[in-house]
Amino acid sequence: MQLDAQQRHRVRFTLNGAPAECEVEPRTLLTDALRHGLGLTGTHVGCEHGVCGACTVAIDGVPARACLTLAVGVEGCDLRTVEGLEPEPGRLGVLQAAFRRHHALQCGFCTAGILMSLDAYLRLRPGAGRAELTEVIGGHLCRCTGYAPIVAAALEAAAILRGESTQAANQEETAHA
């Protein structure tokens, strides 16, 4: 199947569990298709050449750089973006809540990408420990936090998702009350 350089072409995929489509040129990056084509601005764009990780989304269950992905290349794929993390409108997912508790974000520019990497990775390897998660976070640049709170939030979220630490959130809230 051949697509003309100057024309726009329809691409269909699954986005956060629902069918989606948009019209793109062959050169359109997935970041721009999501942000401009579909209005989902949660996926951020930092460097646009694969270095910073801000644009990370999950493609067929694995974390990937949206800025290094052509929109025409995701035809038929299963995409997840940060917009898909909230369990219902206005509520935070487990990872997001852990980030909030640990102050794992300041400006938030890097956050969506890191959440998507961790979300995808923990689905594949729920047992991941500190070394592994630090390596995953190593695929991202954060200029605010110094990373330590991000690692702490990731470890806590992993434990909660494994069912080992369901109380973490409540305990912390009472401790602060």
């Binding site: 697509l3 040129e25 062959p26 025409v72």
Partner: peptide, 12 residues
């Protein structure tokens, strides 16, 4: 930056 325009063939 964005790529310059190109055609695209998804080879089967």
């Amino acid at each position: 930056m964005k790529p310059a325009p190109f055609g695209y063939l998804r080879a089967a």
